[in-house]
Design a protein around this nucleic acid. Structure first.
Lengths: 190, 190, 190, 190
DNA sequence: AATGAATGAGTATTCATTCAT
DNA sequence: GATGAATGAATACTCATTCAT
């Protein structure tokens, strides 16, 4: 009996991410994906039930990883601003290093594939945000605006930083990271 | 000889925007679009050479309108912060009132349709940003960071505000608009 | 504008009947059906929504025709036995002349396509049988057994007669028809 | 070396009969059949060369069993009508108890699988019929019609009885069996 | 200009069968 | 013998686009 090569699933996912990054979700054609991975189209259907399953399975796994990442940092004993900066930098780095994953998540979110699915991972992230901003407000460091606004701004700055860096309009170094974070901080601090 | 009916063209565009907002660009099927507009599929091809032309023509027109909008405000004789706020509010309102148009632009930008096209309208916008931020820096009011960063942040805040409002997580009233703008201002002011 | 040739639908149906008779329902391949009719596969989908619709539409139409056929004969003023014979001969002729249609109906009935459909036409036929046998019983001419049994026997004899004739084991002439009917009559008469 | 497990072969056949009864021959998928039996798809191919072989092997075996069954009864020393009734009842019971087998045979007969095969078993049955009806005619008890007609009627009545019983429109008891047989007898008796 | 019919070139998916262990 | 993985060859269906009027 041939043994299942567990790398194959990873290969499929990797190439799917590549394609989505380059051509969008609609650009994922089962046949050409298979060719890229070096498989027969039929083999894809051993690893994923169908195209929807392929897209949503990857989506779920990515959301899960992303959420897991941040949970560790919340309990550190740093001053609030530094802790926030650390988490922010961590998110920034994660986003840069996983820009294809991020692009994939964004695309799926606004695609029809996402319609029926409850995004569990996102809830985790939401809770993290809540905890984080609550702490800042309690220490009187953050503006007294709704958490969703704070989270929106943080996300927005993150996203745009990533875009600037990926578009080579900005380098990813400590100085620039400091600049971006200080602008974020100025925006949300009380 | 009958002439092309300009209303029909507008109808096609309107329904295309609707579809893209609801189902994404991949959801635009020439036949069902035609049915929605009340035309034959063949008639679409009188108004637009093909699907790509349909998408990109709409895209160009929208980008053009968006840019035109802002140009008027630059010459007003208000203090800088107020002028910036006015432009920001104008953009915000425009984005809210034209969220389908905005969604369309975003979708096209990350679609394969956009690949071969030089985004003329965007250049216009880029120039506006340059002028605007230049003025602020000259008056010593803005942080001395790259214009692209300033523009990115302004765009980011705009986008997230729109999302919050459209998702009904935030109301569109003067107070909230003030809050969002003041956060933006804090972020970019020197 | 090209005009729709109403014969095309009939052609599709005719060739579908041929294929089902020769190879069974599973032998109906949309592409080769289209080729036989002289159309593109895509064109089939203008006339029938999908394969299931193709099969079930034909089925419904055939059932309808079959039922309509018999309704007329019920009111004639012949002696019962002669009337029954006339209807029987009519059914026999119909079955012989439309053996492909009959085969089609039989195949669909035991196929998964039939599962979800309520067979309206059959109900009509059922009612006809009921009326017919009721009359015979009232005149004391038929055995006092359940109508479903009488109908079953009549159907059975019909089917087997058709098989014998189509297999060339029996000729379709008046003598043989008489023989078959008299055997049927002997079986059901009181 | 292990030998082919005869129980496995029986299991495969049993589940094949189940599937054909429920979903028709087209419903037999080698992979899911294997799963049902608790085997790997590849293992099926140890027991049967391919799908056609699977279907036709089962078919041949069933035809053989059916013919064997009847041969024993022909020599009994009963009066003709009673002997015929006994054989008829035996066939009826066999058909009821083996309705899946019967359905299988019917389905295969009208499927493309049957095309190239000469139905040996049926010949045996044909000979039995010939002997049986010959005897009846010699004793002046049966109508002087072609044996194929007599056989057709007997088969027809049998089939319809089975259908009535399996559809619960008729109970399988001595009275009903008597009724059905007497109708058959009335039909064929001289 | 306007149109409904028609279609070629895809696209996802299935499934009998074989491979490699 | 037994097996799970792998696949080639279908197959139903879609859709942007063109045809013929």
């Amino acid at each position: 009996m041939r043994v299942k090569d567990e790398n194959k699933r990873k290969d499929i996912i990797k190439h799917t991410l590549d394609i989505v990054y380059e051509k969008g979700i609609a650009g994922v054609k089962m046949a050409s994906l298979a060719r890229k991975v070096g498989l027969s189209p039929a083999t894809l259907y051993i690893y994923f039930k169908n195209k929807e399953d392929l897209i949503l399975s990857i989506f779920s796994e990515l959301i899960g990883e992303q959420a897991d990442l941040s949970l560790g940092q919340l309990n550190t004993e740093l001053p609030y601003k530094l802790k926030l900066k650390k988490i922010w930098l961590q998110w920034l780095n994660f986003s840069i290093n996983n820009f294809k994953e991020k692009a994939f998540i964004d695309q799926v979110k606004q695609s029809p594939y996402c319609e029926e699915m409850t995004v569990k991972g996102d809830l985790k992230l939401h809770d993290i945000g809540t905890l984080l901003f609550q702490e800042g407000k309690e220490q009187g460091l953050l503006k007294e605006v709704d958490n969703s606004i704070l989270k929106a701004i943080m996300t927005a700055m993150l996203n745009e930083s990533v875009v600037l860096i990926l578009n080579k309009q900005m380098e990813l170094n400590e100085e620039n990271a400091d600049t971006m974070f200080s602008m974020l901080w100025d925006a949300i601090k009380s």
